[in-house]
Design a protein around this nucleic acid. Structure first.
Lengths: 243, 243
DNA sequence: TCCTTCGCGAGAGTATACTCTCATGAACAT
DNA sequence: ATGTTCATGAGAGTATACTCTCGCGAAGGA
């Protein structure tokens, strides 16, 4: 019965909010039947405004605070915290909302069946996306690394992208298999695919990018190129062993 | 011979220890040879006690706070901050102090010239060391990722270890070349070595370990094994192209 | 012995992230 | 029309990391 419950979920996807269509009668009063459209819509608008403000600010590449987002969204800080348990959750959703689907991200190589080429494209895409939102991504990493329990909620774009890039390798439904431990396929392929995905999950990451730029002192372009090289090297090595 | 010097420095551009600038020629005690040994020793003991306490607490694997360290070291929190500009600096030094040299860490494979074997050992060593100090390492990453400017000071164990593991590959002084862009050697070797080092710097890391355990949900042992696989795969691939 | 220096503790102060409570007024039900 | 629900704003409160200031008291010089 709390505000929290009504707005419900906070994970990816904000289409679940309204339990009844916006339509109904005019937002005014008097229309019988389902009258609570006004409040539900209001909450939806508030929530959307907050996420939008966070998304816009994230694109500056700077760090972003909750008061800043709230004031940009024309709500109070308290309200922002009513919709999101913490800054990290909000940033997560704001970032996830800006992500194209894995298929869209790999559109440029949609015609290619070469995993190496596709992995290179995925790496480039992910890292440039991260780079443009550095401040927020850094804050997200900082928040999740000290609270591993809640880290599961971090956007799985990385994994989706990798799956999508390696789709040509998976017979059919393998790419959609999250666990990825392979099945009754009988071949050694699934295990190798799983391992390759783990290899790439480590490499195609914001953490890898920041390691190279911050600790190793590389400039962003060089770092992206280096990680691209690492990712394709791993892919080629896996292909060599599993033709 | 200022008190500053005696207590020792630890990173770039921080001389915050005292507010006093013990001032070379203060009128009073010009001579005295080693008269001020008492105070200098006292400061050294205090500093050592703080680092020791931090090191011990770090080995619990938990997170550690400055008040906790201070009380374990029997000093006030203010004193701890007099010796270290922030918690991260102290943790950094405490962790670095527990590190064996790269050579010692790779003692088990000292007799081997096989880079693959040596890289596997380095990976295993680094990740187990990190795992045993999870809480502190996580806090360090969180602190440095939001302040890239000061990240340079993070312990370079990773790089030293990698250099040491790849020592058999480097003709002579190449392993000691930080920039590593290769020189007038004429061959393609140095560039490939540099790239391999970057590959491994991304993979043999605490960030990689936490990515797999936190985001991918792997248990620590599986994660370590996976990263070991990734690292050796990269090493083998590099060897294949540069015999 | 007397006086200065200075390492240190204690406590107040700041910044950021987040929580809690309460009052307001619009939306809604009756 | 009237009473209830509830989204919201405002502001105080908490926790952690860190800073600043004051003053004590012992180390050390003369």
């Amino acid at each position: 019965m709390t505000a929290q419950d009504t707005t419900g979920q906070e994970t990816v996807g904000q289409e679940t909010v309204g339990q009844e269509t916006v339509g109904g009668g005019t937002a005014g009063h008097g229309s019988a039947g389902q009258g609570s459209a006004g409040r539900a819509n209001q909450k939806l608008r508030t929530r959307t405004a907050i996420v939008q403000a966070a998304a816009e600010l994230s694109r500056t590449g700077r760090e972003v605070t909750m008061p800043e987002i709230a004031s940009a969204a024309l709500v109070s800080e308290a309200t922002a915290y009513r919709y999101f348990p913490d800054l990290a959750s909000l940033l997560r959703e704001a970032i996830a909302g800006q992500l194209p689907t894995a298929a869209e991200a790999l559109e440029a190589v949609a015609g290619s069946d070469d995993p190496v080429e596709r992995v290179a494209a995925a790496t480039e895409f992910l890292l440039r996306h991260v780079l443009a939102r550095q401040g927020v991504v850094r804050a997200l990493i900082a928040a999740t690394i000290t609270r591993p329990a809640e880290a599961q909620a971090r956007p799985g774009l990385r994994f989706g992208l990798i799956d999508q890039a390696l789709a040509p390798l998976a017979g059919t439904a393998d790419a959609a298999d999250p666990g990825g431990t392979g099945r009754a396929d009988g071949t050694a392929r699934p295990a190798a695919l799983t391992q390759l995905k783990r290899d790439l999950a480590v490499v195609i990451s914001a953490e890898a990018l920041f390691s190279l730029t911050d600790l190793h002192g590389l400039d962003p372009e060089t770092a992206i190129a280096s990680i691209g090289h690492t990712a394709t090297t791993l892919t080629r090595a896996a292909l060599r062993e599993n033709p």
